[in-house]
Simulated scan of single mutants.
Amino acid sequence: MADERGRRPGNPQTRREILEAAMESFKAHGYGGTTIRGVARAAGVDPALVMHFFGSKDGLFSAAINTSLPVALLVGAFDGDEAHIGERLVTKYLEVWEDPAHGPDLSAVLHAAAATPAAAELLKELTSRELLGPVTRRLSGDHAEIRALLTASQLLGLAMIRYMLKVDPLASMSAGQVVAVVAPTVQRYLTGPLSLDEIAGTGRPG
C-alpha cells in the first residue's frame, strides 16, 4: 500500500522496480547523469528507500548491472567439450548482444564504464567476480587467467566495433559470418599454445 505521499513501501517487488528504473536511467542518461533522486522518482518511491536498499549510486549501479547482465549465459558456454568452446562462446555472445532484452543494457554499461572511472571500477569488480573467475576455473590448460582476459579483450573489441560504433562491414555481417572468423581466434586464446613461458624466458617475443 502506498503511503500518504503516494510512494510505495519497500519489498522485493519494489526493489526490482527500482533496479529497472535505474537501468533505464543509466541507458538514457549514463552513469554521470543518473541520480538517486531521479531513480526514486521514476520508481515512485522515496529516495531514502533507494539508499536503504543500495547504500549509494555506486551500489545501485553495481546491483543494476549484476541483475541485468546475462553473465550466467556466457559462463554456460564453457560447459561441454573444450574443442568447440570458441564457437559456442562467440555464438552465445552475439545472441546476447542481439537480444533486445539484453543488448541495450550491455551497451549502457559499457558506455558508463568508458565515461566514468567509478563505473569502470564497478564493472571490473563484477566482471572479475562473476565472469572471469568462473571461466578461469573451467579451463584445464595453463595460464587460465590470461586466457580468460585475452578472450574478454577480443569480445569487448568486437562489441565496440559491431554494436556500439557500428562500423561496416563488421556491423552488417551476419552472426554466422562473425562466428566463423572470430571463433578460431577465441578458441586459440582459450585452448591453444600461448608461448608465454618462452616469451618470459627471453624478455621479448621472438
Rank of each mutant, 00 (worst) to 15 (best):
A118K: 11
K124A: 15
I36F: 04
R16T: 12
T35A: 00
E17Q: 07
V75C: 09
A159C: 10
G10E: 03
L74D: 00
A113K: 05
R188G: 05
G141H: 10
M173Y: 08
R7E: 02
A180D: 08
H111I: 14
A152T: 07
L139K: 07
E87G: 03
T116R: 12
S68V: 13
A22Q: 02
Q177H: 12
S174T: 15
K27H: 09
I146M: 14
L19N: 02
L73Y: 07
P169F: 01
G176R: 05
A64H: 00
Y31E: 00
S25A: 11
V178N: 06
A159H: 12
S128D: 12
R137F: 12
R8L: 03
E198G: 04
W97T: 11
A2W: 09
L132Y: 03
D197W: 01
A43H: 00
N11L: 03
R41Y: 09
L155K: 03
P47G: 04
A180K: 10
L89M: 11
A77F: 06
A64F: 09
F26R: 00
Y189T: 04
E198R: 13
Q13P: 05
R5N: 14
D105N: 14
R16M: 09
L156R: 15
A108P: 12
A63E: 09
H111E: 08
H111K: 08
G192F: 00
V75G: 09
S128N: 12
Y163V: 06
V135E: 07
A83N: 12
V50W: 10
E121G: 13
R138M: 13
H111L: 04
P70D: 03
R129P: 08
I36T: 13
P169N: 03
P104F: 06
G176N: 01
H29T: 12
D79M: 07
N11Y: 07
M160N: 14
L69D: 05
